[in-house]
């Protein structure tokens, strides 16, 4: 690339824009469908499809264990996987602030390509806009994704039944703490890395195991607390979690103690919560553990009836008492009280 910074001209739609597209995106995302450069990607179909979209605006854009590009691909791959689909095609739309360094853009785009390759998805269409300095913060990415539904799966947050087992694929809070550790004004040093990862292979292993899967969700923003509360509300049940089975890395626990945060409300980007028929709990855990991202999968709780009709999430604390696990309200702010 002749230039070293993104200029407003790169978003103009003219020659300079084409150069940006050819020299960055087309070069890195080498896909035959994308290479056609049509307005929409035409893909083979005729099956039941899953379709999703998400925008990524993380700050800082590079963080321990990942970056905005990896996040943008994994997030959409995971959303498709959670519905029981096999992710196939992804779009990538960029909003870039003028002045953004090409060196960084390459890093982001290459990281997207690597994540897409690992997940076995093709980036088949895209868009780029460049905005004036100050109108965006470095780079925003939107990805949409299409996946082909696996036959004979019925996965939904409303499917939970009393007796079902609740399984998590590993530790919680890693992504949120990794990102926070690099934030201005909160600087603390820790070896913790974001768990950002594509989970399609892990989910495929779970479904292939033959386990009766009722619900799957990745506990991203709002953390495990939000996902479990969504489950409880949509199925009208009590989700009962035993804290002693929930894995929290020491550094995550330490950072949360220090900043007054609840690790249950801290974001994850490479974890799945599965609710399965109790009889298939061990089978599900074993299937998750075949994936490098599910080595620490474990059963953390069970679904119970809501006796008073009030769905909720309860947590048996390490000290042996029980409390409510509520959703995060508003922005997660460090507190000193």
């Amino acid at each position: 690339m002749a230039d070293d910074r993104v200029l407003l001209a790169h978003g103009s739609g003219g020659k300079v824009s084409h150069r940006l597209i050819d020299e960055v995106f087309m070069k890195v995302f080498t896909d035959p469908i994308l290479n056609r450069q049509d307005d929409a990607a035409v893909v083979p179909g005729g099956e039941k499809l899953a379709f999703t979209t998400d925008s990524y605006v993380v700050k800082p854009i590079f963080f321990p264990g990942g970056d905005i590009g990896k996040l943008a691909v994994c997030g959409t791959v995971n959303d498709l996987s959670m519905s029981g689909a096999v992710p196939k095609y992804i779009s990538a739309a960029f909003v870039i602030e003028e002045g953004f360094a090409f060196a960084e853009l390459y890093r982001v785009v290459e990281s997207m390509a690597a994540a897409a390759e690992e997940a076995g998805v093709a980036i088949v269409t895209g868009d780029t806009k460049v905005v004036e300095r100050g109108s965006a913060d470095q780079i925003f990415i939107n990805t949409a994704g299409v996946g082909i539904m696996r036959p004979d799966v019925d996965i939904a947050a409303s499917n939970l039944r009393p007796g079902d087992a609740v399984i998590i694929s590993g530790s919680i809070g890693d992504h949120g703490v990794a990102v926070m550790s690099t934030r201005e004004g909160l600087s603390f040093r820790t070896a913790i890395e974001s768990d950002c990862a594509p989970l399609n292979a892990l989910i495929a292993a779970v479904i292939d195991s033959g386990a009766e899967v009722h619900a799957l969700r990745d506990p991203t923003r709002g953390g495990l607390a939000s996902t479990l509360n969504e489950f409880a509300a949509q199925s009208g049940v009590v989700v009962a979690i035993d804290e002693k089975h929930v894995l929290i890395a020491d550094q995550v626990a330490g950072a949360c103690e220090m900043l007054g945060l609840d690790p249950y409300q801290v974001a994850n980007e490479g974890k799945v919560v599965a609710v399965v028929a109790a009889a298939d709990a061990e089978k599900t855990v074993a299937a998750m553990r075949t994936s490098p991202y599910g080595r620490e999968a474990r059963i953390v709780g069970a679904i119970a009836e809501a006796p008073d009709g009030k769905p909720r999430v309860t947590l048996k604390t390490t000290v042996g008492t029980t409390r409510i696990l509520d959703m995060l309200v508003g922005e997660q702010l460090p507190r000193i009280c």
């Binding site: 603390f188 040093r189 820790t190 550094q251 330490g254 103690e257 220090m258």
Partner: peptide
């Protein structure tokens, strides 16, 4: 520099 279970501040 103080270490809080792997977090240094």
């Amino acid at each position: 520099e103080v270490d809080i279970s792997g977090v240094v501040i």
